[in-house]
């Protein structure tokens, strides 16, 4: 288990290569993740999400600098959408973080959301583990808050920061439902623009309706571009972790997340196996043909697949 050992020793290039393997669903990655799992759980994982162009990368850059000043090591996972047509992606978040590049305490990795089996969430969780075992204190996950898979990732972190900008108006209404559940810290960025206070008020009003779980999400003002309001956000990140630990919510939440993760991994493996079996004996194709010709319904077909799946066992081959 060469890779695991090297990773735990703090070898940067092993970390980079391991992330590639995880991203590519390489079976080798699973072996390494198994071996390092015991070394995970120490990092504070933070999701940063919000509408496109809200200033998520700019804020992440500044937050990382501030936390680094406080003596911490930081990983940043920046996720951008993969083109569903070509499978390609332009990952541009590093532009905002250029002067973190040569900071030895910071490691930035850009990921395409890729439409791979098991989904983005599964791979991101793997990458988080790699960073965690590597010894990072904070792991930021930046995603564009629009799709479901992004919300999934955010659910898998300890603290979620929702970045808003002034004057979103209708957008706030639209994402209200999602917001209520997932945000632990709300940041109204670009407070230099008109309407910041109104947006903050609106958010606070909405949050008043949120069920009291012992943590009242703060609504903070920031001008990420000018490094204003950053200390406050960092303080609240630390406070939130304190709260999670003291209220014993951390253990609970992580257990809940692990539950979801196990299901995700199982789902992913099943998908892979279904495809693999299909490659061997065309089972899926044959069933699909039948369903399409109305000779069978999709529910029975699915039962059949599951049955053969159980009969064959789940050996990796």
């Amino acid at each position: 288990m060469d890779l695991a050992k090297k990773l735990l020793k703090g070898d940067k290039r092993t970390l980079a290569r391991l992330i590639t393997l995880i991203e590519n669903d390489d079976p080798h990655a699973i072996e390494v993740l198994k071996a390092i799992y015991n070394h995970t759980g120490k990092a504070h994982v933070i999701g940063i999400t919000g509408p496109p162009g809200a200033g998520k990368s700019t804020l992440t850059d500044k937050l990382a600098k501030e936390l680094n000043k406080r003596g911490k090591k930081i990983a940043i996972i920046a996720v951008d959408p993969t083109s569903p047509f070509t499978g390609g992606a332009i990952l541009g978040d590093r532009v905002r973080m250029a002067d973190l590049t040569n900071n030895p305490d910071v490691f930035i990795r850009s990921m395409g959301s890729r439409g791979t089996l098991g989904g983005l969430a599964k791979n991101t969780l793997g990458v988080i583990k790699a960073f965690d075992a590597y010894g990072m204190d904070y792991i930021f996950v930046e995603t564009v808050g629009v799709g479901q898979s992004e919300v999934d990732i955010v659910k898998a972190v300890d603290t979620t920061i929702l970045v808003m900008v002034p004057g979103l108006g209708d957008d706030i209404q639209a994402i209200k439902a999602g917001i209520m559940e997932i945000g632990d810290i709300f940041v109204v960025n670009k407070a230099d623009l008109e309407g910041a206070h109104r947006t903050m008020m609106e958010l606070e009003t909405m949050l008043d309706f949120r069920q009291d779980e012992g943590w009242k999400p703060p609504v903070l003002e920031a001008i990420g571009r000018d490094n204003i309001g950053i200390g406050q956000i960092c303080d609240n990140i630390e406070k939130h972790m304190d709260f999670l630990v003291k209220s014993d919510k951390l253990g609970y939440a992580r257990r809940e997340n692990v539950k979801k993760e196990i299901i995700e991994i199982a789902k992913g493996s099943m998908e892979v196996h279904i495809f693999n079996n299909n490659n061997k004996d065309n089972q899926l194709e044959i069933l699909a043909e039948r369903v399409a010709n109305k000779e069978q319904d999709p529910y029975t077909a699915s039962d059949e697949i599951l049955k053969s799946f159980i009969n064959r066992g789940i050996k990796n081959d």
Binding site: A16, I19, T86, G87, G88, I90, G92, R94, A98, T101
Partner: peptide, 28 residues
């Protein structure tokens, strides 16, 4: 390159060689 199915890490203007190499390492 994106349209050809590749993942492009775009790092923008005024990069030092040090930044380019370090980013290349981190991004593998």
């Amino acid at each position: 390159l994106r349209d050809a199915g590749m993942e492009v890490i775009y790092t923008g203007l005024r990069q030092t060689p040090e930044q380019i190499v370090e980013a290349a390492i981190q991004e593998d």
